[in-house]
Amino acid sequence: MRGPALSSLALSAAEEGGFQPPTISETHLPDILPWMAPWGTGFGKNMLMVILAVVLITWLFSFAIRKQALVPSRGQYLAESAYGFVRNTMGRDILGDKHFRPWIPLLFTVFFFVLFNNLFGAIPGLQMPTFSHAGPAYAMAAIIWVTWIGLGFKLHGAKFMKLMTVPSGVPKPLLLILTPLEFLSNFIIRPLTHSLRLMAVMLAGHIIVMLAGSGAEFLIAQQEGIANAGLGVAVLLGSIPLYFLELIMMVLQAFVFALLTAIYIQGSIEADAH
């Protein structure tokens, strides 16, 4: 069923006093500074949270390591543990001892930037993951795409295109089929899935929480008996496990996004290894 048809059904239900579920359009809040939007791209809540994430990450880690004591404080220990997790799990284990060090700043930034922007969806008041919208997810994936593609051409020159599109050891007749597929897979589909995986999971979790909250509010506000009110409270209580499930997915998606970034970079570095 198409979007306009769903909107019409929801509007009819609302006019008849029925439940009107939240729609995707309701996740797109009005611009904070609409006068900055001559082309319809004003300064909105998403952009504000991107800036807030940069400020928070910078301040938290700067504050945690400000003393750099030999016997670390709790904050310094947590900051060093977070750095060590990215360094070892996403850096050294994926890129190898020889190549991982120059890429730790990028992997650290990617992981915590995505993590903080995801966790905004679990904070009352903010209550919206930045990457539940396609624009920020596309932008992040585009930055990573340009990085590993540029690295590949820097290390291997024009040969990088052949290494990424022509499988070795394949009979020549099959190359007519496999080469276009490899090109689409590596250069087109890879950045799309990198972004859409993050966006789809964040949007789905956000919609589920919105649906549970609006459904509970509708049932409780109806005042048509204790049964409806009790059901509304049950829906509200049932949304608590969903909230923690979404919290887990926020962390997991930040890890997956950064891990794939490391894998793509490793693929560019060792493109001629096979």
Rank of each mutant, 00 (worst) to 15 (best):
I226P: 03
V166R: 13
H194C: 10
K67E: 09
L178I: 04
I177A: 13
G152I: 06
L198F: 12
L174M: 12
M140N: 04
H99S: 01
L260Q: 10
R66Q: 12
G150M: 07
L56I: 14
E16S: 15
A258E: 13
H99A: 04
L231C: 11
G230W: 01
M140I: 10
G91L: 06
H274Q: 09
F160R: 06
L52W: 00
F183Y: 14
V166C: 01
N118K: 09
A14N: 08
T165W: 03
S214T: 15
G267W: 01
R92N: 09
H206M: 09
H156V: 12
S239V: 09
M199N: 13
V170S: 04
P167T: 00
F113E: 03
G96M: 11
G157P: 12
G232F: 02
E16H: 14
L252K: 12
S268L: 06
G42T: 04
E217K: 05
M49S: 10
I189G: 05
F257Q: 06
Y83C: 00
P4G: 13
G91P: 05
G91N: 01
Q266G: 15
I144R: 02
G18A: 13
L245P: 00
D97G: 15
S132H: 11
H133M: 13
R92K: 14
G135N: 07
K45S: 09
F112Q: 06
G3C: 07
E15G: 09
A262H: 01
S12R: 15
